[in-house]
Design a binder for these strands. Structure first.
Length: 943
RNA sequence: GCCGCUGUGGCGAAAUGGCAGACGCAUUGGAUUUAAAAUCCAAGGUCCCGUAAAGGGGCGUGUGGGUUCGAGUCCCACCAGCGGUACCA
């Protein structure tokens, strides 16, 4: 085999690895362990795209590297296969979801194996496997069996939930209902996102701009009884435990912002009734802040209690329970009209566009507890019923939204926080002409005057708390996780609803016994959604739907779990994938967890990672896992864009229009002056010239051409298929190219000539060692069993040092560059020490494993190099005996001098002064200072 | 609007505060070849002065300031592109 032919080499080694189970991972680590995990793919019908191998190659390099460093490496792969896209795909192709899913999994597996990843395939799993979702259901039962003890800040068994006296007094049913309310998995009436297009409800996280993330269908808000998971209980821990994780600050911030913890105070405002004097009460009757406000009290949440004196009106959400109560007869018509309009508005309408504030006056007033002033109560949809108390005190001087509303409706604006004296807009703030949201000194606030914002918050909260009118409060943007879906292709809930003789639910629920898990999906002819909120599982036969236990009749829960469920814990199952007795063997869990490196796309920054962390914490609280966080180090690979394209714009009559004149219109692009529609066309790079900092048409330089890479998409036709790349260049080239493109975390455009470039490098490596003219596999004659020269040793050791460091820091692009330099160097050497060649093969093996194995064999080894010790280096060998030191005058490079590498500062300075050119330049100048750094540089500061 | 990321040759990119552009693509020249492909070797930031060839000098990391003997790197302000997000009181 003379020439490098990946089409032969690659399948050969894939077969070898598979046949010898080269990458089988031991049950328990032997020595130090490392758990390297990819975000498992969703096996869509489209197959792997080039974004997948990017992260997978990065983890594969690390896995192979650590194996050679002697660690026990757990590196598994599986499939996240339940959920909407798979079901939509099955409907489209008119096959049962299980059939199409298994077919897609087969295709993904073929592609992953084609790329030579060193997974332990014996651990492969899919979330749709009955033996897998059995334990997903089991974990759901753990959630169902857990309540959150706010005092201890941890989840505890439901049996330990203290039952209040008054509940106990109401008997067994009341106690059961009380327990059900406190479970981490509970049924709640929630204003949900119902998506008729998909026939299911969606989590808040799955709704983008009032449309479904998947399919872009409109979403309506409607109240439905749904399974919820009490993730909010873990809000503080999910936030706090981010501190100890080795994640990028950006991702941590995304999670923190999503959790959205804010601190402030709840304050009660007494509603002014015509029948009682305005200052009837200035404190609550009991001097204790009531758990729930009475009908004459409007409770608000504020993060700025220091601005209470500036509260000039109040706003309640249109859905607020006090709307009726507060509306006076004169206002009732206007209020009814406004609230009705608000309820018909979709979330999209509410938030779209310029967000002009609208509202309506209720006719009622509240009493500001700090100064007894009467302030009007308004209704406006910029206040959300689902956050805080659904009501706010409006401080227009210090809140942008309140300011805008106050200006619209002519409400008073009173400045109570003094901006700094240096502020150029200070006067406008003080006059209430502009809104000041920063900190400052309290003013117009009686006893608070002169206090800083933080001090004022504390003081006023304390004062009002003493009168039973306020308490410190914490709020989260995070909402409880809506956990049920009305679709077929998901895990059934292991829950039974008791029914009476007429088949009506009694309200009692019970868990399916663990021994009866899994609850499998029923056989259904027609599992398609029908646009109504009853789940398709309700169409199952009675034999599936109804069960009788201990003489009681039950109907199964017919909702299914969302796609996130299976991906919340797959990393645990990889550790013990075949365990039939438990989710995981605790000893194995302890030995392998946590995940040491988790690599995947940033699109999972909030959803998957937050949900998985939540489940993990519950399992931790209940003693099933030993660490409180699952993923120690997280790295997000950047997106791979399509090839860079030059795009020009053309008007309807085919005339070129400069990109400078094109702007985005309602649909597509329009001419910025004439507003006529423009079409865009890809321009060949041969017709484009660079002019200044932009590109123009060579034929007409007045036409500017856009140059950029776009996201790969079917519609744009710029999708790169890994199969094609492997066929034309080989898997090793694909792997190497994706690592060479740039930093792992950066967004990078694809370049086919770039793939060709790394293939070229692999060819050079091949020719460095293999005699391409020989008939048989044979190394070149220049490879000899001799000691390397000093120069060769320097290159060898410097390369080992750099590649080792770069792999550990995930700097794969520079590691490859170092190996290229190595090859460039040794290509010129007529004698190539065998030891040097072996070193290169070992260094290259994590990146291009097929070629490395083949060369390793050609060099005379008869086993895989996968466990061969990683090359070591001697830093002393990397140093040159002489170095060239730059000489500067006033920081400007003027000359260079060659000195011994160990030359001390004094000798170096002397050498520099004696340098002919420097000597000349220094002549007649006064040297103020000389900065001399041995081995690096000399700088003379002169006057 | 807010948040985040990114601005370095024709392109992808390197560079513990110390020689900007390693490595690769594309380009150009040379060697080899009957020829081509392939391969090997070499060249190049830019402007100015100068020359047969040399050589010499200035300017260069989005813009403007600052810190420093010295800034692509640190600080401040701004601009542009990309991505995310949407009234959370």
């Amino acid at each position: 085999m003379p020439r490098y032919n990946p089409a032969v080499v690659e399948p050969k080694w894939q077969t070898y690895w598979e046949g010898n189970k080269t990458f089988r991972c031991p049950e328990f680590p032997e020595g130090e362990k490392v758990y390297i995990l990819d975000m498992f793919p969703y096996p869509s019908g489209a197959g792997l795209h080039v974004g997948h191998p990017e992260g997978y190659t990065a983890t594969d390099i690390q896995s192979r590297y650590w194996r050679m460093k002697g660690k026990s490496v757990l590196h598994p792969m599986g499939y996240d296969a339940f959920g909407l896209p798979a079901e939509e795909y099955a409907i489209l192709h008119n096959v049962p979801p299980r059939v199409s899913t298994e077919k897609n999994i087969g295709e993904f597996t073929r592609q992953l194996k084609m790329l030579g990843f060193s997974y332990d395939w014996d651990r492969c799993l899919a979330t749709t496997d009955r033996e897998y979702f059995r334990w997903t259901q089991w974990i759901f039962l753990v959630l169902f069996d857990t309540w959150f003890d706010a005092e201890q800040q941890r989840g505890r068994p439901i049996a330990e939930l203290p039952i209040p006296e008054h509940v106990l007094a109401n008997g067994e049913r009341a106690v059961a209902a009380y327990r059900d309310q406190h479970r981490l998995a509970y049924v709640g009436e929630a204003l949900v996102n119902w998506c008729p297009g998909l026939g299911t409800v969606l989590a808040n996280e799955e709704v983008i701009d009032g449309k479904s993330e998947r399919g872009n269908h409109p979403v309506q808000r409607m109240p439905l009884r749904q399974w919820m998971l009490k993730i909010t209980a873990y809000g503080d821990r999910l936030l706090h435990d981010l501190d100890g994780l080795d994640w990028s600050p950006g991702i941590k911030k995304l999670q923190a912002d999503w959790i959205g913890r804010s601190t402030g105070a709840e304050v009660d405002f007494r509603i002014a009734r015509a029948t009682e004097p305005a200052n009837h009460q200035s404190s609550s009757a009991s001097q204790v802040f009531p758990e729930t406000p009475d009908a004459n009290t409007l409770r608000v949440y504020t993060t700025r209690p220091d601005t209470l004196f500036g509260a000039t009106y109040m706003v309640i959400a249109p859905e607020h329970p006090l709307v009726q109560n507060l509306t006076t007869s004169e206002q009732s018509e206007a209020v009814a009209k406004y609230c009705q309009a608000a309820s018909f508005k979709s979330d999209r309408d509410r938030t779209e566009g310029d967000k002009k504030k609208s509202g309506v006056f209720t006719g009622s007033y509240a009493i500001n507890p700090v100064n007894q002033k009467l302030i009007p109560i308004w209704i406006a949809d910029y206040v959300l019923i689902g956050y805080g108390t659904g009501a706010i005190m409006a401080v227009p001087a210090h809140d942008d939204r309140d300011f805008e509303f106050a200006v619209t409706y002519g409400l008073p604006i009173v400045c109570v926080v003094e901006p700094s004296a240096q502020d150029s807009e200070r006067e406008q703030y003080l006059q209430g002409e502009k809104c000041y949201t920063g900190p400052g000194l309290a003013m117009n606030s009686e006893t608070l005057n002169g206090l800083g914002t933080e001090d004022a918050k504390g003081k006023i909260t304390e004062m009002l708390a003493g009168r039973g009118l306020a308490r410190p409060a914490v709020n989260y943007k995070l909402r409880d996780w809506l956990f049920s879906r009305q679709r077929f292709w998901g895990e059934p809930f292991p829950i039974l609803h008791e029914v009476d003789q007429d088949g009506k639910p009694t309200g009692a629920i019970r868990a399916v016994d663990v021994k009866d898990l899994p609850v499998d999906l029923p056989q259904l002819e027609d599992y398609k959604p029908h646009g109504r909120p009853e789940p398709p599982l309700a169409k199952a036969d009675d034999s599936w739907l109804f069960v009788t236990i201990d003489g009681k009749r039950y109907r199964r829960e017919t909702n299914t779990m969302p796609q996130w469920a299976g991906s919340c814990w797959y990393y645990l199952r990889f550790i013990d994938p075949k365990n039939e007795l438990a989710m995981i063997d605790p000893a194995k869990e302890k030995a392998w967890m946590p995940v040491d490196l988790y690599v995947g796309g940033a699109e999972h920054a909030v959803l998957h990672l937050l949900y998985a962390r939540f489940w993990h914490k519950v399992l931790f609280d209940r003693g099933h896992v030993s660490h409180c966080e699952p993923f120690q180090k997280l790295v997000n690979q950047g997106m791979i864009l399509g090839e860079v394209e030059f795009t020009g714009f053309q008007s309807q009559d085919g005339q070129w229009v400069s990109a400078a004149l094109a702007e985005k219109g309602e649909e597509g692009y329009v001419h910025s002056k004439t507003k006529l529609p423009l079409s865009y066309a890809v321009v060949s790079d041969a017709d484009v010239t660079k002019s200044g900092d932009q590109f123009v048409l060579t034929a007409d330089p007045s036409i500017r051409i856009d140059s950029r890479a776009h996201k790969m998409s079917k519609s744009r036709g710029n999708v790169i298929n890994p199969d094609t790349v492997v066929r034309e260049y080989g898997a090793d080239s694909l792997r190497l190219y994706e690592m060479f493109m740039g930093p792992l975390e950066a967004t990078k455009p694809w370049s086919t000539t770039g793939v060709n470039g790394v293939r070229n490098f692999l060819d050079r490596v091949w020719r460095l060692m293999i005699d391409t003219y020989a008939e048989e596999m044979k190394v070149v004659d220049s490879i000899q069993a001799v000691e390397p020269t000093a120069d060769q040793n320097r290159v060898i050791h410097a390369t080992i040092m750099a590649v080792t460091r770069d792999i550990e820091t995930l700097g794969f692009n520079t590691a490859i560059a170092r190996m290229m330099e190595f090859v460039n160097f040794f290509t010129k050497e007529t004698v190539r020490p065998k030891q040097a060649m072996e070193t290169l093969v070992l260094l290259l093996s994590p990146f291009a494993p097929h070629m490395a194995e083949e060369l390793w064999q050609a060099l005379g080894h008869d086993t895989t190099l996968a466990y061969h010790p990683w090359p070591t280096f001697d830093e002393a060998m990397t140093r040159l005996s002489e170095v060239e030191v730059p000489l500067q005058i006033n920081g400007k490079l003027k000359a260079k001098v060659v000195v011994a590498a160990d030359c001390n500062a004094q000798d170096l300075e002397t050498a520099a002064r004696n340098h002919e050119k420097i000597h000349e330049l220094l002549d007649g100048k006064q040297i103020v200072k000389a900065i001399v750094i041995p081995g690096r540089m000399v700088n003379f500061v002169v006057k």
